[in-house]
């Protein structure tokens, strides 16, 4: 192969949800959430995705991660369309694409210890053969995200919001993914903690060479962390480009209004 394949390629992705019927005989109405989306995510880059609430940015993230169904021949992983992957390949795809969500308290099971939370994905993906190896890996991960391994025996309720988010990041990294989808991953955190989590994400990305799809409504954060930025408005992709181009020379009116509204 002469040219390196992009990690993820999205081609003409349309996605719509059916709205509930108001009357019994009414025809089903569709709500078009994503309209003709084209994008690529290269290996090792951070792609920022900004837009207002309701612009479809989370749905796009979920489609890429395989949490939402998508039409055939629209999402390609390493050059292969998602629907042609067989069972084992799809499991591997799931392993390679990991999520970090907004509210760390909601995404960690309150009845499992941190150790169990970190071991669960490694068990289901059968990454290490012995339990000792997995526990060693869990300790290593805790060090990676800046938490003391002594937390392994505690429950999520004993940790603060920032610490929980670090655990969520460690869990996502435990299966050595190639793409991390951060859906508003720092929005719920306090300012002083937010900065440390952003730095952590950038350090880990460098260490493990992970691509990152960073979904956020906060322009300043996206500007800080991304290499390239995609702007979405009402399900359409209105502008895409490198960070400096978008923020200094926005071409689309919507992007301009978004930048002007920053305080």
């Amino acid at each position: 192969m002469s040219k390196q394949q992009p990690l993820i390629k999205v081609q003409q992705l349309n996605k719509s949800f059916t709205l509930p019927k108001q009357f019994f005989f009414e025809r089903r109405k569709l709500l078009h959430v994503l309209k003709n989306i084209n994008l690529t995510i290269e290996k090792g880059e951070t792609l920022g995705l900004v837009g207002e609430s309701g612009s479809g940015k989370s749905t796009l993230g979920e489609c890429i991660g395989g949490l939402q169904s998508s039409p055939p021949e629209t999402i390609f992983y390493d050059g292969k369309p998602l629907e042609t992957l067989n069972r084992d390949e799809f499991k591997k795809y799931r392993r390679n694409v990991q999520f970090v969500f907004q509210d760390p308290y909601d995404t960690l099971n309150p009845r499992l210890t941190i150790e169990e939370i970190l071991l669960e994905p490694m068990n289901s993906q059968k990454i290490f053969s012995t339990k000792k190896e997995r526990i060693d890996r869990a300790k290593e991960l805790m060090n990676d995200v800046g938490l003391s391994p002594s937390f392994l025996k505690s429950y999520p309720r004993h940790l603060s919001g920032g610490q929980c988010q670090r655990v969520a990041i460690a869990r996502a990294l435990s299966v050595q993914p190639s793409l991390l989808i951060c859906d508003e991953a720092v929005s719920a955190l306090d300012l002083s903690v937010q900065a440390t989590i952003l730095n952590l994400l950038m350090d880990l990305q460098e260490k493990y060479n992970i691509s990152n799809l960073f979904i956020s409504h906060d322009l300043q954060v996206v500007q800080y962390i991304s290499d390239r930025v995609i702007v979405m408005c009402q399900g359409e992709l209105v502008e895409t480009g490198y960070v400096t181009d978008i923020f200094q020379h926005p071409k689309h009116d919507y992007t301009r209004s978004l930048i002007d509204s920053a305080l």
């Binding site: 900065a195 952003l198 950038m202």
Partner: peptide, 24 residues
């Protein structure tokens, strides 16, 4: 001072913003 430093205001990738170590 630290709080103002932690705002990623017009920061560009590469220049690190300073977080505040420790927890609330």
């Amino acid at each position: 001072h630290d709080l103002l430093q932690a705002v990623p205001h017009h920061a560009i990738k590469g220049q690190r913003i300073k977080g505040i170590p420790g927890t609330l």
